[in-house]
Nucleic acid binder design. Structure first.
Lengths: 151, 151
DNA sequence: TTTTTCTAAGACCGGATTGTCTTAAATTAA
DNA sequence: TTAATTTAAGACAATCCGGTCTTAGAAAAA
């Protein structure tokens, strides 16, 4: 798995918050969000706390409370969220896990992976919450988990 | 982590086997290999068993036994090894983990991730054990874990 | 045949990640 | 002030992966 589950939940939740705060001012309830995105409430809360302490979100307790973007949606990138939750390892580590791998001592796939990794970085960096939610609305893209089916 | 540790160990071991069987005929001892690559013997054994049951290696018990490539080194790609150990998920799954994501119902990063994923796939597919070991020798590339330092 | 050298196979443990639950604290509304 | 709503925080359980260990079994050598 390239991104941890916590990280993908963090991205989906951030997109949800962006769309909701477009509609109405104020905070978005974590309880309501967890229901609509089909993510465990307590797990989602923990993830959003990480984004809050990273300075990407603010929160408010009590009735009418919830979370909101701390910065403008055009100033938060998906890269910010990935780094806040999963850290920088994805963009710095050797694909084969060789500790000293670098330009001086490259491994067998160092150059290829370096290029791919850079594209991944630029992809996350170029997508802000604003542009991504706009894209979602225009192209009717998916950004939520489906309800789990009972089997 | 893009590849599991088991998968990277499988790649490193396969490259080692290719280089050793270049020198002498017959089988490569797992015990000796685990020492030189600094990988746990029993863990390496488990990984090599997966590669054996996937048809990439053969094994022989007893003295002078060990493992060997079942096919020619130019017919085994790094992709074969990745798929044998980690499966196809890396090359098929949605980056955001949305179950139904595809061309009909794309997620917000579907197209970008699709392109990157394809490059990753082609990189692994284009590198055979033969070409990669040749590259390692010519360019003096790293393909083994360093000995762990006592601290 | 017996011993030694190996791989085969699977039980087992520890730590990280994922996910659940409970309690506390803050804020609003009545 | 009191009650209701909501996040904060942390304990806790379950699951998966990485790694270790033990026993079995096969093949070669003595």
């Amino acid at each position: 798995m390239v991104l941890s589950k916590a990280c993908t939940y963090g991205i989906l939740a951030s997109l949800y918050i962006t769309r909701e705060t477009n509609k109405k001012t104020g905070y978005v309830s974590i309880g309501r969000m967890s229901k609509e995105l089909h993510i465990s409430f307590h797990f989602l809360t923990k993830i959003l706390q990480e984004l809050t302490s990273a300075g990407l979100l603010t929160s408010m307790k009590g009735p009418k409370g919830g979370v909101a973007l701390k910065q403008d949606a055009k100033d938060i990138t998906l890269l910010d969220i990935v780094i806040a939750i999963d850290g920088m390892e994805l963009f710095s580590e050797c694909l084969l896990g060789l500790p000293g791998c670098g330009n001086e001592e490259p491994c067998a796939v160092h150059n290829e992976w370096g290029g791919i990794r850079e594209q991944l970085y630029q992809t996350f960096r170029s997508k802000t919450l604003a542009t991504t939610t706009q894209q979602i609305d225009e192209q009717n893209l998916r950004f939520a988990l489906p309800e789990l089916l009972d089997s």
